[in-house]
Design a protein around this nucleic acid. Structure first.
Lengths: 300, 300
DNA sequence: GGAATAGTGTCTATGAGACACTATTCA
DNA sequence: TGAATAGTGTCTCATAGACACTATTCC
């Protein structure tokens, strides 16, 4: 095969020897890591269960651009590593964690999304099954968990002659004890004739760096969709858990309450009972379950 | 805000003036366009309806690397355009088409996926509602439609101690009157404890350039999933169509037959009847429908 | 008339949702 | 004992699937 020659009469080996990568614009490529976890809120009443909250990990930027703002952890892709490997490496560097669920989310490539230079960034989403202590004085000097809330502020539906436009204003609020961040996205679905287009635009961003408001809100939407038809929720659970804890994770992500009996029927095939129980809770103990790894879904 | 200074005492303006993009490895970024359409097969019996087939557009490579093989149309992203814009531009250049459905699929970034240099490529999927004539002597000298077939060759399920592994061998066959291409993917889902990982690997590729076997098979999976819960199928239909034609499009993408009565009930809210009919077909004429752009789904 | 597609009616099985009820700890 | 959660039973309604049937065109 190496004997094939192109119009200039070159074999592939000869062609590659003379190839100049610099003749096309080269671009900096980074990965950003959207790390979610679900953690307990403290509860004063010993009898009540602690509430759960969806958290995202952000890092305070210590340098320009967006100095002082909060950003997703991430960094440049090295010459010899795949995007997946770069994302896993960044996660490990920032948090010391490995072997957790991770998937590629979306690639952001607006020409001016970073004032330094043209940067294309591939966002990944990862899910963590526990709270981790963030060691201060690390590479990421100032990494913190933020509680995540999302709210639709406004929805406008317009009928145009050739179709319709649906426009939503969605607010994202990220907060912990000391810091409160927020951003607003305008998400538009336009149907023009038969052509449907989606558009996402950051309308307002308060303390969130770059276009990370968009990434976080998109990741949240993906998580919300996937929890309905995959087993992704178990990536957020410890090895043993009660069904109520599992239900709380679903509720916090879907942002609505579920009926216990129905929930249990639905997830029954995905879990396996153990003979352990969680006791000393000020009320009836509950069985501990674990993920049933032999659960068969429609695979791919 | 510009008055914030970093540890070196620089304002953002000063910082940016001294920023050297070259200190990190820069990478070539391209877009690849997976363009699908559904076209009629010729039918000899005048009474029978023509069968439909899913098609993908490929371009024969005239230069190294992968000279002589068939690839997705695509090209380098320009310095000043977004990824979406680059994908739309490439599509327009190769086919003369614009204003069609398009979405970002996935970003491929293995270090050695292209022998020239490190290339990260963002794949897009677009859907076309008609057959277009491919003008020879174009930029893409040799662009052709290929019929797409996918077949699961083997599925192996293994129970490991800590979980399970499901491994599928999937063959992709692309063909037209003169050219027959094929590729085989090994798609693996590994559950290890609670951590689920997916892996896609090209096992064999016969005449399909680079990692495009992976892109095409992934796009096909995405199309198959989305046709079940979105209105994406209408992007593949002309303005007016019969319900049987619409059903054929679903069948060709899902690769299974559907029951007519059930199909019609299901898509009824998405279509609007017209008072036109399709006649002279050697059998009972059928009503023409169009997409109902006021159909309300759960929006986002 | 007959070949072919167009189009409809209805039964059943399954699953989602609502709701009411019983059971069990432990301070 | 009572506050709280754990856990179950059952009804209804909506939807997916199977299947059988009627209707209409045009050669």
């Amino acid at each position: 095969m190496d004997e094939l020659r192109n119009k200039s009469g070159l074999t592939e080996t000869e062609f590659l020897a003379g190839y100049d990568a610099g003749k096309f614009d080269r671009i900096s490529v980074t990965v950003d890591m959207l790390l979610f976890s679900v953690m307990d809120q403290d509860e004063d009443n010993y009898r009540k269960l602690p509430e759960k909250q969806l958290k995202v990990l952000l890092v305070r930027r210590g340098d320009h651009p967006c100095i002082g703002q909060w950003a997703l952890p991430g960094g440049f892709v090295n010459a010899d590593e795949s995007l997946d490997a770069a994302a896993a490496r960044e996660l490990k560097e920032e948090t010391g964690i490995d072997h957790i669920y991770m998937e590629q989310l979306y690639t952001y490539g607006s020409p001016r999304r970073d004032p330094r230079t043209r940067i294309v960034s591939t966002a990944y989403m990862a899910l963590l099954d526990r709270a981790i202590e963030l060691q201060a004085g690390d590479d990421a000097a100032d990494a913190r968990w933020f509680g995540v809330e999302r709210q639709v502020l406004q929805e406008v539906r317009t009928n145009t002659g050739r179709g319709s436009v649906v426009e939503q204003l969605v607010e994202l609020r990220l907060s912990n004890q000391t810091v409160h961040l927020s951003g607003v996205m305008k998400i538009t679905k336009t149907i023009d004739g038969k052509v449907t287009r989606f558009n996402r635009e950051i309308v307002d961003s308060c303390g969130i760096a770059f276009d990370h408001t968009d990434i976080i809100s998109y990741g949240l939407e993906r998580l919300r969709n996937k929890i309905e038809y995959t087993d992704i929720a178990f990536s957020l659970m410890p090895e043993y858990f009660t069904l109520t804890e599992l239900q709380q994770v679903y509720e916090v992500i879907l942002d609505r309450e579920l009926l216990k009996a129905n929930f249990r029927r639905k997830i029954a095939p995905m879990v396996a009972e153990t003979n352990m129980r969680k006791t000393d809770a000020g009320h009836r103990p509950s069985k501990l379950y674990k993920y049933n790894p032999n659960w068969v879904e429609d695979v791919f």
